[in-house]
Design a protein around this nucleic acid. Structure first.
Lengths: 352, 352
DNA sequence: TTTGGCACTCGAGGTGCATGAGTGCTAAAA
DNA sequence: TTTTAGCACTCATGCACCTCGAGTGCCAAA
């Protein structure tokens, strides 16, 4: 898209104005608020052309123009400048990000809360994608007859566990034997490559437990392992969207919150963005999806901005916000970037 | 409150009508919809008296009457009849309540989801109150140098755990020793009576670990135990409130969702209801709070209906809904009662 | 005590009109 | 060729005004 300088300037001015006033911007007010060296009539012509290019649109004939999705896209891709936060803005965020937290999930929740508060939008955090990580330990602890706790320790120090039922008459010793046998066989393997077959056959060779008993335990252990890489999503600040003029129509707000409440959808979508980006070999610090680019119901007026945090070298997850597409992108991006940095710092602190 | 029969009848009819139509009900429409043997003028007189008694109120002069909080209270306390659900209603709920779930939290979430779907309101579930339960086991598992998992097993088979940091150079054996020593001392005690002092002094006598190392581990174990009885709350279906006419004003919806998002508040409040009820020696299957009786901001137009589920003989928690005070109380109560029964069944199934 | 009747209230919803911020287009100026 | 001034046109918004109807309270008769 080869826009001449003036067109760029006009588009940028319109986005800036619209984002702050939430009113369709017309040629006159544009002249008033910015120091263009040309007249409003000229701007009108420029605006008409930008509209032909699909970068602007009119809500109705006698109103000003607003940016289209494509217009926003052009804006974020090549017009916008992302500045660093000011010291006071940084301080404000730092005060909210607590350092006294020892678990990844808590770090993420805390960061997401902060993000929602500072942006005023919905924030979301995805748990780390663990499929590629390795199983380090697997313990099965007897809780009481018939009940055990399967503890799965993954590389990068992530711990997951699950209460499972086991045969009533299984003794502590027997359970211990099974547990060690299984652990010996699966330790060091990546989550992807562990299947029930490998787990079952290998374990059976070693222990002298009756097969019927063994099977149940193995099965439970297997499901515990498999569910360790379940993608959790944490959404925060939905109610904040109700304060935005963009959702002053109740029906919009309803659609939005309705979709957000199906949190598997959001998680899946963000995961998808991430995967696509990786497939395309892009390695941006942040990812943006605007309006219709998002194929989720009720999110036509929203944008996603997400970024990636790291857990060691190979494991990553996402955190970001869902806001109205009419937002101050550069500001929000700086905020997200800063929070991301804080998360990474905090995670490193925990895992030395 | 000694109402004569006709007044009762009138109040009941008004509540019933208002709840279904969401329109202030006037004397005429009341006559039309119900078969009163008197004229509208008589009803007008009755209604005027009911208003004097504070059971009805007028939104404005030329409109019909709506029940006041006190009116609703009278209705639920002595007018309403709670019927059993029909078979098909039961079936519908039973289909959603999954039986294949093995953890209490999952049972509760599943039940709350069901409740929100069938009522169309917000549902909430509180985790069981564990303060009074006994500590059965305490294990500290080494995850990697410097990091351990504290597993707390409580009576009634509830398991809680927490990842903690420990001194880097602590060996597996040392940790095991500490772990067993602590366990021997706290096992069988109730969560309330365990203090850091008792835990620390008793453990120190037994093990031969340097005190500085010991302290950190003990402290972490202690916090893990203490946080085991943290009250978790699960809220579901907030977005459904946006579809209700009661919250068609955006500002109301905003206030409501704003308060609900502070979930400690809701949890605290429900816990309080429960405590009060117990203090007063009441042992109802359900508890109702209407409108202004709830001292939370933005919930003036809401009612809480909660009920208690049991985990064994001594441990309990709550589940219920938050809906508009203009709701079909008897229907919702039946639904909640039925779901409660299902929860109790499911819990029993897990804990034999 | 009940009822019919009547005057009154007031919100909801419809119509009409003025306002003003916007537009596109054209013809003249640069 | 590009820019600009001017002009006719559009249309959402807000206000004033009106009507309608469902409600009320009260009074006098049954």
């Amino acid at each position: 898209m080869a826009l001449d300088d003036r067109k760029k300037q006009v588009l940028q001015a319109i986005v800036d104005d619209y984002v702050t006033t939430y009113e369709p911007v017309g040629s006159k007010s544009l002249i008033e608020r910015h120091d263009f060296t040309v007249s409003s009539a000229t701007l009108r012509n420029e605006m008409a052309e930008l509209e032909k290019l699909g970068l602007l649109e009119k809500p109705h004939t006698s109103a000003g123009r607003i940016p289209s999705d494509k217009g926003y896209r052009e804006y974020v891709d090549s017009l916008m400048r992302v500045d660093d936060l000011t010291e006071s803005e940084k301080k404000e965020i730092e005060e909210r990000i607590s350092e006294s937290v020892d678990e990844v999930t808590d770090i993420l929740k805390n960061a997401a809360d902060t993000l929602s508060e500072t942006t005023g939008f919905v924030s979301l955090a995805l748990s780390p994608r663990l499929q590629g990580s390795y199983l380090m330990q697997l313990k099965i602890l007897m809780i009481e007859p018939g009940k055990a706790l399967v503890v799965v320790v993954l590389s990068a120090g992530v711990v997951k566990d699950k209460v499972v039922r086991i045969p009533n008459f299984l003794t502590n010793e027997q359970l211990y034997k099974i547990s060690s046998a299984v652990e010996r066989h699966v330790a060091g393997k990546s989550l992807d490559e562990i299947t029930y077959i490998t787990l079952a056959t290998s374990a059976k060779e070693e222990s002298e437990i009756p097969e019927s008993m063994l099977n149940q335990v193995l099965y439970e252990a297997y499901t515990a392992i498999k569910q360790a890489d379940r993608l959790d999503v944490y959404l925060q600040g939905e109610h904040r969207m109700l304060s935005l003029p963009d959702f002053s129509e109740l029906s919009r707000a309803r659609d939005l919150l309705g979709t957000l409440s199906k949190d598997g959808m959001v998680a899946g979508y963000v995961n998808e963005i991430e995967r696509t980006a990786r497939d395309e070999g892009r390695d941006d610090t942040y990812m943006i999806r605007i309006g219709q680019e998002i194929a989720l119901e009720g999110l036509d007026d929203c944008s996603f901005i997400t970024t990636t945090y790291k857990l060691g070298d190979t494991i990553s997850g996402n955190i970001g916000i869902i806001g109205p597409k009419r937002m101050d992108y550069s500001k929000v991006i700086s905020q997200i970037n800063f929070v991301r940095k804080k998360i990474n710092d905090n995670i490193k602190r925990i895992y030395e």
